[in-house]
Design a protein around this nucleic acid. Structure first.
Lengths: 290, 290
DNA sequence: GCTCAAACATGACTTAAGTCATTTTTTGAT
DNA sequence: ATCAAAAAATGACTTAAGTCATGTTTGAGC
């Protein structure tokens, strides 16, 4: 897809050796410096630092977790839940704090008690691609834990909440001692693989307009309010986040959103979006020929 | 991404009722007819029909399967292999024959003895997106089998070969009676999920040129010849297939390939592609700023 | 309530890549 | 060997969506 914002500012180290004349050498050097600084900026996440001292340990019992009903832990016995809780730590996270970084080694499982988290990868051009949004009751990081690889993505809190952390050994212990649970996890991961394939096809084949419409509908399903206001999408996503979900530029999302607004398909209430005409959006999502 | 070839020729049934004037009604009707014909064409795959009578049952022993060394069945005992083979059927497939269609119910596992298979989805616009290329030793269809869903994709032979079919119950039997094997499958699927996430980011963020270069390198790794000619990509992919892997138009692939050829990065030997300058391709794949 | 930075919005312009049309080459069947 | 159909190649043109610049609104912190 993608024209790139920083497409032409990159160079690989080995090319240094090939830059024979001074100008080339200088350019290569500067690009290397630039790359280094990008890396440092990546490591030092300012929001993390400022938020560090606000972390505090809290006590949360799994059995009263609001997400429990649709959690994978749903039908574990109380004994097993106790076993998981033994070394569990629960921490309150503020918006912008990062649970784990791509490329690091997973040491345990994150389980969201409250709040919302985005799971994303940073491409070589430095652009973020959101792979998933997680909500209370969801697990995070089990893929890497099970396949014994490094994290394949990063996870950052987008709406403040409490998140529990279960050490690797406790989780794997239950996983291997309870075949039913293992089976359930297996099925879930297979489903997720199917969903990921669907996402791939969507991004590869549909226009940005169609993808935005489809994403709005998906968000309405997942984060729609209960009861009367069921068309209000209850998640504080910036236009940039939205752009990073559908894989496009922020400006494009803004333009399309006001387009949809003009067409009375949605209305914008502050940060939150309300779906006025779901059928219209479905039409936009499928094909937008008129 | 995508401007679409048939973007404006579609309409849903319910809209028929809304077309009040005669012209709209006629247009809607024609579009409906068109959609119906597309559906019929989808159902009647001519290549399948003409190839039907060439199928014949053959006997293949798993223990001599050329792909066994890197197959998931690799370290099953001979007893277990016998058990799997009991109701196994092996059939020779010609190019263009389809193993299974998206949306149908899986009844067993396909295991490739020889030949190559593409796994793909057809988008609502009728365009094909290739998700995977499978080679001897690979499994097909286990995801749907395990998650007990319908096939999420279709699989069609692109290079003639022999493919074995193991009934669902036999496969699931081994899966649930051999925890080590179950575990191994679980890990594999987790890895695959990771790979799929990577693919998603690549398609969402990289330009077509970068993706083509990356795909050529991947194909060289996977299908490169043994020994001297290790840079010859030994898979008969049409330009269209290649376009459907990277998610672009056939013409674009053709143009870029002759571009790469002019740059001496590759050479075209009939259908097959030879990588002349891997480092150059790596550079193209990462960033093509100059 | 005021300030300032971040987020949102909009216009102008550029370009990668899609689409359509036509020609050339390859391939497989008779 | 011949022919027709499929695949590959190339040119001309269009457009979705990216990029850059600049202005406006919002909201968190003092």
């Amino acid at each position: 897809m993608a024209l790139k914002r920083h497409g032409r500012n990159k160079r690989l180290i080995f090319q240094l050796t090939k830059a024979i004349n001074l100008k080339n050498l200088l350019v290569a050097f500067l690009k290397l410096i630039r790359k280094f600084f990008i890396f440092v900026v990546y490591l030092i996440n300012l929001k993390d630092l400022t938020a560090l001292n606000t972390k505090k340990n809290i006590k949360i019992n799994c059995s009263v977790c609001p997400g429990r009903s649709h959690s994978m832990f749903n039908d574990l016995t109380n004994d097993e839940l106790d076993q998981l809780s033994q070394h569990k730590t629960c921490i309150r996270y503020k918006k912008g704090q990062t649970l784990f970084y791509e490329g690091t080694r997973p040491m345990g499982l994150f389980c969201i008690n409250s709040g919302k988290v985005k799971v994303y990868k940073i491409s070589s051009e430095g652009k973020e691609q959101i792979l998933n949004l997680s909500k209370p009751g969801d697990f995070l990081g089990y893929r890497a834990l099970i396949s014994e690889e490094f994290y394949n993505a990063s996870a950052t809190v987008i709406e403040e909440g409490a998140i529990c952390y279960i050490p690797k050994s406790d989780f794997l212990g239950i996983l291997h001692s309870n075949p039913l649970f293992f089976n359930k996890m297996m099925k879930r991961i297979c489903q997720e693989l199917g969903l990921m394939e669907d996402k791939l096809v969507t991004i590869a084949q549909k226009s940005v307009r169609e993808r935005l419409a489809a994403t709005l509908l998906m968000l309405k399903e997942t984060y729609g309010m209960e009861g009367v206001d069921s068309n209000l999408i209850d998640i504080a996503l910036s236009r940039e986040d939205l752009a990073n979900i559908i894989g496009t530029a922020t400006e494009t999302v803004i333009r399309l959103l006001s387009d949809f607004k003009n067409q009375q398909l949605i209305s914008l209430q502050g940060k939150k979006i309300k779906v006025l005409n779901p059928k219209g959006l479905i039409r936009e999502a499928d094909f937008y020929g008129r």
